[in-house]
Design a binder for these strands. Structure first.
Length: 420
DNA sequence: TCTGGGGTCCTAGGACCC
DNA sequence: TCTGGGGTCCTAGGACCC
């Protein structure tokens, strides 16, 4: 048996823990650059605000209903996420963090009524110890646990825990109530195609012809079908599998039109990616850079491009990464456009040891020492206390973030204050 | 005016090998 | 005119997830 623990309206819930004044108002959290809605309180959902909807489209509704509109505060959310997972780990033998607000929990050894009881206890303690409300779905496979979670959330006044029954009749009845597009692993494209073939519920999908699914869709879709039937295809895998790539990118606060600004942004993203790389003890063998203009705007000339190159030797040294990134960026830069976004990606990551080359003159030991000092200072004194000149000082292109709440749990100078 | 960021996996097709 | 069979590796693009 698997359980999926999923935080309700996670970013909004984090904000509400620290700000009682927004507990009984509709709340939304906006994406980076305050661009679109990425989290909504229940009230906001009820008022028709869509996930991913551009913020400017909602302005009137926000005003009319006295919304609290917040920039995203990922520092806070990540820290709260860790706290929730810590509680889960204390109460369960195996926990697999799946995203910032979800974790699969292995319920091996529990059965019958015990399972529900245990799930309720988890839920109660997470709320009590972190302030974050969660819902728990239970099922024989991860896909079914996801469905259980959906059922738990639908029943708003219910206990926040739901289980997809193991016996066939109960399972089929539960699946019949779920739209095919809401099944984990079935996105917009496949949902549309399935519906046009008469497969409109999770039950239809569970009982679809497997050969057809395999041929018309893919092995991935087939696994989903089998999981809906109760056959485990997606294991609680030997966690922490090593990551495959690191991406850092941002939209600009205002359009970028000269290479200086662009190069600074690329250098800054590269710096961030390098920090991440070293924090995880990895080196990269490949780097790519991309940039594009506003892809929504049809009235302006559009341009998008990317380029990549091998890193020789493999490295996590920020200056080396910046050098490669800037060369790549320069090679795809074209004058005369208003750029909207740029970013970099590191791939072919390994834990080393670094491949040695015959003519390698790079001083690895020296670089390691420098990076170590740099990282320690920036961890202790705050990001960017020391940074490379290539990433600029003015940074007029930086993203907008006008309504961010304090980083209550990670910065001494932003702690909550109680007034006497 | 204003539309996020960070990931994973699979597949098809081309280049190349014998 | 006729043009095999089996394989690997790489990349771009498409699908999905949160």
């Amino acid at each position: 048996m698997y359980a999926l623990a999923d935080c309700n309206n996670f970013y909004v819930s984090c904000e509400r823990v620290f700000d009682p004044a927004i507990r009984d108002r509709p709340v939304v959290v906006l994406s980076n650059n305050d661009g679109c809605v990425v989290a909504r309180s229940q009230e906001a959902k009820d008022l028709g605000i869509g996930m991913g909807q551009p913020a400017f489209e909602c302005r009137n509704v926000f005003r009319r209903h006295r919304f609290a509109v917040l920039s995203s505060n990922y520092t806070l959310y990540e820290d709260m996420s860790n706290r929730v997972f810590q509680v889960l780990q204390q109460l369960s033998p195996a926990v697999e963090a799946y995203s910032i607000d979800e974790a699969f929990v292995d319920l091996h050894g529990f059965d019958g009524r015990d399972i529900i009881e245990h799930a309720r206890r988890i839920r109660r303690l997470v709320l009590q110890w972190t302030g974050i409300p969660i819902s728990i779905g239970i099922g024989a496979t991860r896909t079914l646990a996801k469905i259980g979670n959906r059922l738990a959330k639908q029943d708003r006044t219910g206990p926040g825990v739901a289980r997809v029954p193991q016996h066939d009749d109960g399972r089929r009845a539960a699946l019949a109530t779920v739209d095919v597009g809401d099944v984990w692993g079935i996105g917009r494209r496949w949902g549309r195609r399935l519906r046009s073939e008469g497969v409109s519920t999770a039950l239809h999908l569970a009982e679809a012809d497997t050969t057809w699914i395999r041929d018309a869709f893919s092995i991935v879709a087939l696994r989903t079908v089998l999981e809906l039937q109760g056959k485990v295809c997606i294991e609680m895998d030997d966690m922490p599998s090593t990551r495959r790539s690191i991406i850092r990118s941002r939209s600009f606060g205002r359009p970028v039109r000269n290479w200086i600004d662009m190069s600074e942004a690329i250098a800054m993203h590269t710096t961030r990616a390098g920090e991440k790389l070293r924090a995880e003890g990895l080196v990269a063998a490949m780097i790519s850079v991309f940039m594009h203009t506003n892809l929504y705007n049809e009235h302006e000339p559009r341009y998008a491009n990317s380029a990549s190159t091998e890193l020789v030797p493999w490295t996590s040294d920020t200056p080396s990464l910046i050098r490669s990134a800037l060369r790549l960026g320069r090679s795809i830069w074209r004058d005369g456009y208003r750029y909207k976004k740029a970013g970099i990606r590191l791939t072919e990551l390994t834990t080393g040891p670094i491949q040695q080359y015959l003519f390698d003159e790079f001083d690895h030991a020296r670089s390691a020492r420098t990076m170590d000092v740099l990282d320690r200072i920036n961890t202790r004194m705050g990001a960017d206390t020391i940074h490379y000149a290539a990433s600029g000082i003015r940074r007029g292109w930086q993203m907008r973030q006008n309504r961010r709440s304090p980083r209550y749990t990670t910065r001494w100078d932003e702690l909550m204050r109680a007034r006497a």
